[in-house]
Protein backbone atom coordinates (compact mmCIF):
# COMPACT_ATOMS: atom_id res chain seq x y z
CA UNK A 1 0.00 0.00 0.00
CA UNK A 2 2.78 2.40 0.97
CA UNK A 3 6.22 2.27 -0.61
CA UNK A 4 8.87 4.71 0.60
CA UNK A 5 12.06 4.67 -1.48
CA UNK A 6 15.25 6.43 -0.39
CA UNK A 7 13.12 9.10 1.24
CA UNK A 8 14.99 12.20 2.43
CA UNK A 9 13.78 15.33 4.20
CA UNK A 10 16.10 18.14 5.18
CA UNK A 11 15.23 21.30 7.11
CA UNK A 12 18.10 23.61 6.28
CA UNK A 13 21.23 21.70 7.28
CA UNK A 14 19.35 19.29 9.53
CA UNK A 15 18.43 15.93 8.00
CA UNK A 16 15.25 14.65 9.64
CA UNK A 17 14.72 11.65 7.35
CA UNK A 18 17.79 10.05 5.81
CA UNK A 19 17.33 7.75 2.80
CA UNK A 20 14.51 5.81 4.40
CA UNK A 21 13.08 2.84 2.51
CA UNK A 22 9.98 1.07 3.78
CA UNK A 23 7.10 -1.03 2.47
CA UNK A 24 3.73 -1.18 4.24
CA UNK A 25 1.60 -4.02 2.79
CA UNK A 26 -2.10 -3.44 2.20
CA UNK A 27 -4.45 -4.81 4.87
CA UNK A 28 -1.95 -4.54 7.74
CA UNK A 29 -1.78 -2.55 10.93
CA UNK A 30 1.77 -1.29 10.79
CA UNK A 31 3.57 0.13 13.82
CA UNK A 32 6.09 2.90 13.36
CA UNK A 33 8.26 3.34 16.45
CA UNK A 34 11.19 5.53 17.33
CA UNK A 35 12.51 7.91 19.98
CA UNK A 36 11.59 11.62 20.00
CA UNK A 37 13.14 13.44 17.05
CA UNK A 38 13.80 10.21 15.10
CA UNK A 39 11.83 11.42 12.06
CA UNK A 40 8.51 9.58 12.54
CA UNK A 41 6.23 12.62 12.31
CA UNK A 42 8.18 14.07 9.36
CA UNK A 43 7.86 10.76 7.49
CA UNK A 44 4.14 10.55 8.19
CA UNK A 45 3.60 14.15 7.11
CA UNK A 46 5.36 13.34 3.83
CA UNK A 47 3.12 10.31 3.34
CA UNK A 48 0.04 12.48 4.02
CA UNK A 49 1.21 15.01 1.42
CA UNK A 50 1.78 17.84 3.90
CA UNK A 51 5.57 18.01 3.45
CA UNK A 52 7.38 17.66 0.16
CA UNK A 53 10.33 15.22 0.26
CA UNK A 54 13.79 16.65 -0.37
CA UNK A 55 14.66 13.39 -2.12
CA UNK A 56 13.28 9.91 -2.82
CA UNK A 57 9.68 8.95 -3.45
CA UNK A 58 6.45 8.16 -1.63
CA UNK A 59 4.08 5.81 -3.48
CA UNK A 60 0.57 4.99 -2.31
CA UNK A 61 -1.14 2.16 -4.16
CA UNK A 62 1.56 2.37 -6.82
CA UNK A 63 1.09 6.10 -7.50
CA UNK A 64 3.70 8.68 -6.55
CA UNK A 65 2.10 11.21 -4.19
CA UNK A 66 3.59 14.40 -5.62
CA UNK A 67 2.51 13.43 -9.14
CA UNK A 68 -1.20 12.93 -8.36
CA UNK A 69 -1.60 14.51 -4.93
CA UNK A 70 -5.37 14.95 -5.02
CA UNK A 71 -6.14 11.37 -6.03
CA UNK A 72 -3.78 10.05 -3.35
CA UNK A 73 -5.03 12.35 -0.61
CA UNK A 74 -8.62 11.24 -1.28
CA UNK A 75 -7.55 7.70 -0.27
CA UNK A 76 -5.92 8.72 3.03
CA UNK A 77 -7.25 9.66 6.44
CA UNK A 78 -4.57 11.53 8.39
CA UNK A 79 -4.60 11.91 12.17
CA UNK A 80 -1.88 14.32 13.40
CA UNK A 81 -0.04 14.08 16.70
CA UNK A 82 -1.70 17.22 18.04
CA UNK A 83 -5.45 17.64 17.61
CA UNK A 84 -5.63 21.22 16.33
CA UNK A 85 -9.14 21.96 15.15
CA UNK A 86 -10.99 25.23 14.48
CA UNK A 87 -11.91 26.46 17.96
CA UNK A 88 -15.05 28.29 16.87
CA UNK A 89 -16.66 25.49 14.88
CA UNK A 90 -18.95 22.96 16.51
CA UNK A 91 -18.04 19.27 16.36
CA UNK A 92 -20.70 18.65 13.70
CA UNK A 93 -19.62 21.66 11.64
CA UNK A 94 -16.01 20.48 11.75
CA UNK A 95 -16.90 17.00 10.51
CA UNK A 96 -19.15 18.46 7.80
CA UNK A 97 -16.29 20.73 6.73
CA UNK A 98 -13.82 17.83 6.53
CA UNK A 99 -16.31 15.74 4.53
CA UNK A 100 -16.74 18.68 2.13
CA UNK A 101 -12.97 18.91 1.65
CA UNK A 102 -13.20 15.35 0.35
CA UNK A 103 -16.12 16.33 -1.88
CA UNK A 104 -18.81 14.63 0.21
CA UNK A 105 -22.10 16.08 1.43
CA UNK A 106 -25.73 15.27 1.96
CA UNK A 107 -27.77 12.87 4.05
CA UNK A 108 -25.17 10.08 3.86
CA UNK A 109 -22.52 12.36 5.38
CA UNK A 110 -24.92 13.48 8.12
CA UNK A 111 -25.63 9.85 9.02
CA UNK A 112 -21.93 9.01 8.98
CA UNK A 113 -21.17 11.99 11.22
CA UNK A 114 -23.79 10.93 13.74
CA UNK A 115 -22.44 7.37 13.77
CA UNK A 116 -18.87 8.52 14.33
CA UNK A 117 -19.84 11.05 17.01
CA UNK A 118 -21.83 8.40 18.86
CA UNK A 119 -18.98 5.90 18.52
CA UNK A 120 -16.63 8.30 20.30
CA UNK A 121 -19.29 9.43 22.80
CA UNK A 122 -19.32 12.94 21.36
CA UNK A 123 -23.03 12.92 20.45
CA UNK A 124 -24.11 15.23 23.27
CA UNK A 125 -21.35 17.67 22.24
CA UNK A 126 -22.04 17.75 18.50
CA UNK A 127 -23.39 21.34 18.56
CA UNK A 128 -20.84 22.75 21.03
CA UNK A 129 -17.85 24.70 19.73
CA UNK A 130 -14.65 22.67 19.90
CA UNK A 131 -13.01 25.43 21.95
CA UNK A 132 -14.95 24.03 24.90
CA UNK A 133 -13.75 20.43 24.28
CA UNK A 134 -11.10 18.75 26.40
CA UNK A 135 -7.86 17.55 24.76
CA UNK A 136 -9.16 13.99 24.64
CA UNK A 137 -12.44 15.06 23.05
CA UNK A 138 -10.60 16.97 20.35
CA UNK A 139 -8.44 13.91 19.74
CA UNK A 140 -11.58 11.82 19.33
CA UNK A 141 -13.07 14.39 16.95
CA UNK A 142 -9.92 14.40 14.78
CA UNK A 143 -9.94 10.59 14.69
CA UNK A 144 -13.63 10.66 13.70
CA UNK A 145 -12.84 13.20 10.96
CA UNK A 146 -10.22 10.84 9.46
CA UNK A 147 -12.92 8.21 8.96
CA UNK A 148 -15.68 10.50 7.71
CA UNK A 149 -14.79 10.09 4.02
CA UNK A 150 -14.25 6.29 4.21
CA UNK A 151 -10.50 6.19 3.43
CA UNK A 152 -8.48 3.14 2.37
CA UNK A 153 -5.43 4.10 4.40
CA UNK A 154 -5.15 5.67 7.85
CA UNK A 155 -1.91 7.46 8.73
CA UNK A 156 -2.02 8.13 12.44
CA UNK A 157 0.56 9.83 14.64
CA UNK A 158 0.40 9.04 18.35
CA UNK A 159 -3.33 8.28 18.56
CA UNK A 160 -3.51 7.28 22.23
CA UNK A 161 -2.33 10.57 23.75
CA UNK A 162 -5.12 12.17 25.74
CA UNK A 163 -7.66 9.38 25.23
CA UNK A 164 -9.51 7.94 28.22
CA UNK A 165 -9.52 4.13 28.64
CA UNK A 166 -12.88 3.79 26.87
CA UNK A 167 -11.73 5.96 23.97
CA UNK A 168 -8.46 4.02 23.69
CA UNK A 169 -10.35 0.74 23.58
CA UNK A 170 -12.75 2.04 20.93
CA UNK A 171 -9.82 3.18 18.85
CA UNK A 172 -7.99 -0.16 19.09
CA UNK A 173 -11.16 -2.03 18.09
CA UNK A 174 -11.81 0.44 15.28
CA UNK A 175 -8.32 0.02 13.80
CA UNK A 176 -8.50 -3.77 13.99
CA UNK A 177 -11.95 -3.83 12.40
CA UNK A 178 -10.79 -1.41 9.70
CA UNK A 179 -7.83 -3.67 8.85
CA UNK A 180 -10.06 -6.77 8.83
CA UNK A 181 -12.15 -5.06 6.16
CA UNK A 182 -9.08 -4.58 3.96
CA UNK A 183 -7.97 -1.15 5.16
CA UNK A 184 -4.36 -0.28 6.03
CA UNK A 185 -3.18 1.59 9.13
CA UNK A 186 0.26 3.13 9.61
CA UNK A 187 0.50 4.10 13.26
CA UNK A 188 3.30 5.75 15.16
CA UNK A 189 3.26 5.32 18.90
CA UNK A 190 5.42 5.53 21.98
CA UNK A 191 3.19 3.06 23.82
CA UNK A 192 5.18 -0.09 23.13
CA UNK A 193 2.61 -2.39 24.74
CA UNK A 194 -0.01 -1.12 22.28
CA UNK A 195 2.32 -1.69 19.33
CA UNK A 196 3.26 -5.17 20.53
CA UNK A 197 -0.38 -6.10 21.05
CA UNK A 198 -1.97 -4.56 17.97
CA UNK A 199 0.51 -4.33 15.10
CA UNK A 200 1.03 -6.94 12.39
CA UNK A 201 4.42 -5.51 11.53
CA UNK A 202 6.68 -2.97 13.20
CA UNK A 203 9.43 -0.65 11.97
CA UNK A 204 11.81 1.06 14.36
CA UNK A 205 13.32 4.31 13.15
CA UNK A 206 16.37 6.03 14.67
CA UNK A 207 18.11 9.19 13.41
CA UNK A 208 15.97 9.23 10.27
CA UNK A 209 16.78 5.64 9.20
CA UNK A 210 15.09 2.29 9.65
CA UNK A 211 16.89 0.38 12.41
CA UNK A 212 14.74 -2.76 12.25
CA UNK A 213 11.59 -3.99 10.51
CA UNK A 214 9.41 -7.08 10.70
CA UNK A 215 6.78 -8.92 12.72
CA UNK A 216 7.30 -9.20 16.49
CA UNK A 217 8.57 -12.73 15.96
CA UNK A 218 11.08 -11.58 13.36
CA UNK A 219 12.29 -8.74 15.58
CA UNK A 220 12.73 -11.13 18.51
CA UNK A 221 14.56 -13.63 16.31
CA UNK A 222 17.17 -10.99 15.51
CA UNK A 223 18.09 -10.60 19.20
CA UNK A 224 20.73 -12.77 20.88
CA UNK A 225 18.41 -14.35 23.45
CA UNK A 226 15.40 -14.57 21.12
CA UNK A 227 12.90 -13.60 23.80
CA UNK A 228 13.43 -9.87 24.31
CA UNK A 229 10.44 -7.66 24.93
CA UNK A 230 9.68 -4.89 22.44
CA UNK A 231 10.92 -2.39 25.02
CA UNK A 232 14.31 -4.14 25.24
CA UNK A 233 14.55 -4.35 21.44
CA UNK A 234 13.60 -0.67 21.13
CA UNK A 235 16.17 0.47 23.71
CA UNK A 236 18.88 -1.64 22.15
CA UNK A 237 18.24 -0.53 18.58
CA UNK A 238 17.79 3.15 19.29
CA UNK A 239 20.84 3.32 21.54
CA UNK A 240 18.80 4.73 24.42
CA UNK A 241 20.06 4.13 27.94
CA UNK A 242 17.82 3.69 30.95
CA UNK A 243 18.10 6.68 33.27
CA UNK A 244 20.50 6.03 36.13
CA UNK A 245 21.21 9.53 37.36
CA UNK A 246 17.75 10.20 38.82
CA UNK A 247 18.93 10.54 42.39
CA UNK A 248 21.62 13.00 41.39
CA UNK A 249 19.07 15.20 39.60
CA UNK A 250 16.39 15.05 42.29
CA UNK A 251 18.85 15.66 45.13
CA UNK A 252 20.61 18.56 43.42
Amino acid sequence: MIQLTQLVKRFGRFTAVDHLTLCVPAGTLYGFLGPNGAGKTTTMRMIAGILRPTGGTVEIGGIETWRQPQAIKAMIGYIPDRPFVYDKLTGAEFLRFVAALYGQEGAAVERRMDELLELFELGPWRDEITGSYSHGMRQKLVIASAFVHRPQLIVVDEPMVGLDPVGARVLKDLFRAFVRRGGTVLMSTHTLEVAELMCDRIAIIARGRIAAEGTMAELRAESASGNESLEDIFLRLTGARPPHALDAVLDA
Binding site: I50, Q70, K73, I76, V98, L101
Partner: peptide, 13 residues
Protein backbone atom coordinates in the same frame (compact mmCIF):
# COMPACT_ATOMS: atom_id res chain seq x y z
CA UNK B 1 -2.02 27.95 10.95
CA UNK B 2 -2.45 25.06 13.32
CA UNK B 3 -5.18 23.57 11.16
CA UNK B 4 -3.07 23.67 8.00
CA UNK B 5 -2.43 19.93 8.40
CA UNK B 6 -6.06 19.38 7.51
CA UNK B 7 -6.06 21.49 4.36
CA UNK B 8 -2.74 20.08 3.19
CA UNK B 9 -3.70 16.47 3.77
CA UNK B 10 -7.10 16.87 2.08
CA UNK B 11 -7.53 16.60 -1.70
CA UNK B 12 -8.03 20.36 -2.06
CA UNK B 13 -6.32 22.39 -4.77
Amino acid sequence: GRQMWLLRSAPVD
